[in-house]
Amino acid sequence: MKTSKYLLATLLMTGGVAQAADNLHFYGNLLSKSCTLVAQGETLAEVHFPPISYKDLMAIGQSDRMPVVFQLKDCKGPAQYSVKVTLTGTEDSGQPGFLAIESSSGAQGVGIGMEKTDGTPVPINDPSGATFVLTNGSNALNFRAWLQAKSGRNVTPGDFTAMLTATFEYI
C-alpha cells in the first residue's frame, strides 16, 4: 500500500514567543488492504482462446481479443482511490512486452498481448502497469488478451499454456 499525505505548516512569529495548546491535529486512515481478490480455484482468471487456424493467424497476425477480468470484492477506501495492476511473467524473446507461451507447449511462434478494454497496451514486466479507479464494494478490472504471431516466424500449430502474475498496488 502506498499512501502520500503532505502537511504544510507555516509559523508566523511577531514580536515575542507565543504558545498555544492543542493547535495542531493529525488525521489519517491506515488500510491493511483495500479489496479482497476473488479467486477461481487457485487462479484469479483463466483465458481459453478459441481454436484458430495457424495459417489464418499467420495471415492476419493476431487473434480476436478475449476478455480477462480480475474480480475484487469488499473494497473499502476513501473517495477516489485506485489500484495499479502490473503483469509479470516470461517475456516473449521476439516480441518485447508480450507474454511468452511455455516452451513445453506444442504451439510455437506466438506471444500473448495484454491491453485495457480501451486499447491501452499493458506490456508484460512494465512497472507502470494499468491503473483503475475503484469504488467501494465490488469491482471488475477488465483487460483483453490476444495471440500475436511473431513477425517473420512460422506459427506451429498445437496446444499451448502461459502464466503470468498480477500484482495489485492500492494508491
Score class of each variant (00 low, 15 high):
T3P: 07
N23R: 13
T167Y: 04
Q108F: 03
R153W: 03
E115Y: 02
D74L: 06
S138E: 15
G28E: 03
F26C: 03
D159N: 12
G15V: 12
P50Q: 13
A21W: 05
P123R: 12
G119F: 07
I52L: 08
S103N: 10
F143K: 05
A100M: 11
L44A: 14
T86Y: 10
P121W: 09
T36P: 00
D159I: 00
E169N: 06
A107V: 04
V69K: 14
F49K: 03
S128A: 15
M1H: 14
G113K: 10
S63Q: 08
G89I: 05
A166G: 08
G129P: 08
S63V: 02
F168C: 05
G111T: 07
S105Q: 02
L87C: 10
Q95S: 13
A149T: 04
W146T: 05
P157V: 01
T36D: 15
K84E: 14
T88R: 15
F70S: 03
R153H: 05
L7R: 06
F143A: 10
T156I: 13
G119K: 07
A45G: 05
I101S: 02
C35G: 04
G158M: 06
M163T: 11
V110C: 03
W146S: 13
Y81R: 15
T117N: 08
L11I: 11
N29M: 15
E115H: 08
W146L: 14
Y170D: 09
F26S: 10
N125A: 07
V17P: 07
T117D: 05
G106A: 15
A166S: 04
T86I: 08
Y54T: 04
V133N: 11
K5L: 10
M66D: 02
M13L: 13
M163L: 02
K73P: 01
T14L: 11
R153E: 04
A100N: 05
I171E: 14
D74P: 07
T36C: 01
G113I: 04
T86R: 10
T43Y: 12
G106R: 12
Q19P: 00
V47G: 07
S53P: 09
T167R: 13
Y81N: 14
R65C: 11
E102L: 04
T43E: 13
G129Y: 09
L7C: 04
G158A: 06
A130R: 14
G129K: 11
P78Y: 12
Y27C: 02
E91P: 11
A145T: 13
V69Y: 10
I101V: 01
L164Y: 06
Q40M: 06
K5C: 10
P127E: 07
